[in-house]
Design a protein around this nucleic acid. Structure first.
Lengths: 213, 213
DNA sequence: TCGTATATACCGAGTATTAGGTATTTTTTT
DNA sequence: AAAAAAATACCTAATACTCGGTATATACGA
């Protein structure tokens, strides 16, 4: 029997951390030798334990995953790091590659893919999941009428809300939708009232929290 | 031996979903009888299986957790729903209570608390974790110098960035920090350049993605 | 068909942000 | 002590957002 792949997992969401560890431990060729809730704890752990693969969440308090990864790589250049994250931007993958990280996966992948990527990385390969910008345009289809009713929004308003969430200005939105800037302003104004937020930033937050961007 | 508590888990992050299910299954008085990746799937599942407790994520694509919960409660008024979420706002708990949901927990709680809350809810109690606004002020202490260096930001800039992330206007920030609005503008301008974002909204996004708010 | 909801467009006045600067003081580092 | 970095303050002009309105055409349901 070949030796098990030794893994340390770092994530601040404790439920996710524990769940993931159990999931990995159930695989017969993986062994979770440690877990940490933030970058600092992870560095501490690495003083005592040397894993083959380090699974690291980005977006953690105390010490951000990217910074922690940087430090880890400086200290242990041959340690293979797999990054998990919720957000994915166009430049993120490039940044991670430059850092010397061996792989990236979004948090909504299924476990089978995770397992195979861990094996691949252990074997010296790399794997970077591409962000799917053009795919999943979050069109009308995915928006239930329930969502509209719940927030008392109309289709057109949500359409504009998405554009606001994607950081377009009123005049840009007006151009894009072939309507007057006054109309865009009106819709924005109405949404601010309906959603009970203070200003455009509130709409931006709402869009982000409801995955409208 | 008393009967096990039957549970269905709904979450779009597949890794989290699988991990959580395994975690729950390992407890001897829980039995996971189903899992779903969105509200629609959950409603489908409930046609065939009746759990004692439904664990539901908010913030899902296809069908949002809150809407799904509403529908579920209409169909099965006696089903106990426990909501998990990453974001927590002041009004969220109130909304959930009004809906008839039995409990709320943030996603970074540890498993022990989750287990005990599931038991409590099963026993007819409710549990709503209070949002901790004043706590965790994300002060200078939690911000590593690494973070500053990585993004080439200064302490003062991050201080202002946090306030921008918390939706304060330049003039409000100026008042709060006892400095001129011009100074705030300068810092904002510099950060927009340093972080390579388009405008204030970009800063808002950056703040949000880096947990600065 | 009649009302309601929706989408559209406009006005004015005030406030905020943005993109170019320049420039001084304070703090930190060498 | 000198140099570099950080924080401070100011200017102008353009653009964007906000809040108080009003108003019309169109689509949709009872």
């Amino acid at each position: 029997m070949e030796p098990k792949i030794k893994i340390i997992v770092v994530d601040d969401h404790k439920l996710f951390l524990e769940g993931l560890c159990v999931l990995l431990s159930k695989q017969k060729n993986f062994e979770v030798i440690g877990k940490a809730s933030n970058g600092k704890e992870a560095l501490h752990l690495l003083n005592s334990f040397q894993p083959d693969v380090l699974i690291m969440d980005l977006n953690m308090p105390i010490m951000d995953g990217q910074i922690a990864s940087e430090k880890v790589i400086n200290l242990y250049p041959f340690l293979k790091i797999l990054v998990l994250s919720m957000y994915n931007t166009v430049t993120l993958n490039a940044d991670l590659k430059k850092l010397g990280i061996k792989g990236y996966l979004p948090k909504d992948t299924d476990s089978e893919l995770l397992f195979s990527v861990i094996n691949d990385i252990y074997d010296g390969k790399t794997y970077f999941k591409q962000p799917l910008e053009p795919c999943l345009p979050k069109n009308e289809f995915t928006l239930s009428d329930g969502f509209l009713k719940k927030h008392n929004l109309t289709h057109r308003e949500v359409e504009i809300l998405k554009l606001i969430g994607n950081n377009f200005s009123s005049s840009q939105i007006a151009t894009k939708l072939y309507i007057s800037i006054f109309t865009v302003d009106t819709h924005r104004k109405n949404m601010i009232q309906k959603l009970n937020v203070d200003n455009k930033n509130g709409l931006l937050n709402f869009a982000k929290e409801n995955n409208l961007s």
